[in-house]
């Protein structure tokens, strides 16, 4: 569906702002002070009682990472995309790409470990520093209403169910 011209202008502005924040982090800090994020009344805290070499770890990112043979995240919708991609722990970095226009990911393409440390966690598991690494999950972190509701009510709970099914002990979340 075509977007109104005003939405396209707003989307271009948001993309440019994200790219600028990537280059000048202090501007991002100033912006964040005025940003009204989601707030929650409680903190869902679970103590971790197993030693790390026995823990199954999951990696969840909002960096827009996906396999090249998976559908890219939707960049045409100015309100974002609440879907996710599941990525096997053994997927080589050469088979990965990024679809996320709201930050500069040139460096991520050079070395996925700076945002999506699948390779490092996989190798740490092989060496016994962590117990194991489950499949990884990737979102595209530009998600505005109404897609935010989809994220909260549908896609994030789906990932949570899968993490539970995979008997994950702890999750590392990495932002864009």
């Amino acid at each position: 569906m075509d977007q109104p011209e005003s939405n396209k202008v707003w989307q271009r502005l948001q993309r440019a702002t994200g790219q600028l924040f990537s280059q000048i982090p202090v501007l991002a800090q100033v912006w964040a002070r005025g940003y009204q994020a989601l707030r929650f009344d409680s903190i869902p805290f679970t103590p971790l009682t197993k030693p790390l070499p026995e823990c199954r770890i999951a990696l969840v990112t909002t960096g827009g990472i996906h396999r090249r043979d998976q559908p890219p995240f939707n960049m045409a919708d100015a309100r974002g995309d609440a879907s996710y991609r599941r990525i096997s722990t053994t997927t080589p970095d050469a088979e990965l790409t990024v679809t996320h226009d709201y930050y500069n990911h040139d460096d991520v393409r050079r070395d996925f470990n700076i945002l999506f440390p699948r390779e490092l966690l996989h190798n740490l598991a092989q060496q016994g520093q962590i117990g194991s690494l489950s499949d990884c999950y990737s979102f595209m972190g530009h998600i505005e209403p109404p897609h935010r509701t989809t994220l909260i009510q549908q896609t994030a709970p789906e990932v949570a169910v899968q993490l539970r099914q995979e008997q994950v002990d702890a999750v590392l979340l990495t932002p864009a």
């Binding site: 994200g18 924040f21 990537s22 982090p25 991002a28 960096g63 930050y103 500069n104 990911h105 460096d107 991520v108 050079r110 070395d111 470990n113 700076i114 945002l115 440390p117 990495t174 932002p175 864009a176």
Partner: peptide, 8 residues
């Protein structure tokens, strides 16, 4: 942004 674990 884009560098939560540091530099490439």
């Amino acid at each position: 942004f884009g560098h939560p674990l540091g530099e490439p």
